[in-house]
């Protein structure tokens, strides 16, 4: 039995003053007893202020460190404060809070250490751009081949983590700018179990995506190198 008080809902946010409030209200509606932590990743707008006004705990980075580091700060907070579970979702409104109970149910029933929300299991990936959808499918296939398990959405940021994975993620070996396929591969090779649940992605509530211009190209090259290097590393199944 999981108590909602054992769950920390983690929202990394960078310049999301217009959207983060609605996301926090949504989380309150579906997981009213859980603590909500917003990691303000060096925003230049009122993201931190709005989040505090909505009653979230806010940890502010002194400058922008990227989404991977923002998530790790949240994991460090969760470990420090003794939370057993973390559910993370984006601050731009693309991850509907109505799926939070599905994550908690899955956390209860499964032996898996990491639950990943998949847009591809509901067909809502149609809302992604063609380039992102193709890239995602490519990395999903590569990842599934490498771990010999079927995963459909390695770039999804809607995830739930158990304390076993949290302990792993607060160490220096967690060094991911975008904790996507390379993160999942590392987690799998460290002996943790990953499962997916379906969720429907919503359009952004506004603002602009960080994945624009040449960024997807650099992302793909970096991810391929990262996957290759991880495969060269020794497996460490004793991490948990």
């Amino acid at each position: 039995m999981i108590s909602e008080r054992e769950i920390l809902v983690l929202i990394p946010a960078f310049n999301e003053e217009g959207r983060v409030g609605e996301v926090i209200r949504g989380v309150r509606k579906f997981l009213g007893q859980s603590a909500i932590l917003v990691i303000d990743d060096g925003s230049s707008d009122r993201t931190a202020h709005v989040s505090r006004e909505e009653g979230a705990i806010v940890v502010s980075h002194p400058f922008n460190l990227g989404v991977g580091t923002a998530l790790q700060t949240g994991y460090k907070y969760a470990v420090q404060e003794g939370f057993k579970y973390v559910i993370q979702l984006d601050a731009d409104g693309q991850h509907p809070p109505e799926f939070l109970p599905a994550f908690t149910s899955k956390l209860k029933e499964t032996e898996a250490d990491l639950i990943v929300g998949s847009r591809f299991l509901t067909g809502s990936e149609e809302r992604m751009s063609a380039i992102r959808r193709t890239g995602n499918k490519l990395f999903a296939r590569i990842l599934s081949f490498l771990i010999n398990e079927k995963l459909t959405d390695p770039t999804s940021g809607y995830r739930a983590l158990k304390s076993t994975v949290l302990q792993f993620c607060v160490q220096d070996q967690y060094a991911f700018d975008y904790p996507d396929a390379d993160f999942l591969l590392t987690i799998h090779r460290s002996g943790f179990r990953i499962e997916e649940i379906p969720f429907r992605v919503d359009p952004r509530l506004g603002g602009t995506s960080q994945h624009s211009g040449l960024a997807p190209l650099f992302y793909s090259i970096k991810m391929m190198i990262s996957l290759f290097v991880i495969m060269l590393r020794k497996k460490s199944a004793d991490s948990n």
């Binding site: 705990i57 806010v58 940890v59 980075h61 460190l65 580091t69 700060t73 460090k76 907070y77 420090q80």
Partner: peptide, 13 residues
Amino acid sequence: VKNLAQELALLQN
């Protein structure tokens, strides 16, 4: 620097 910034943010909280 990343670890220091995270530590600073958590301590400030």
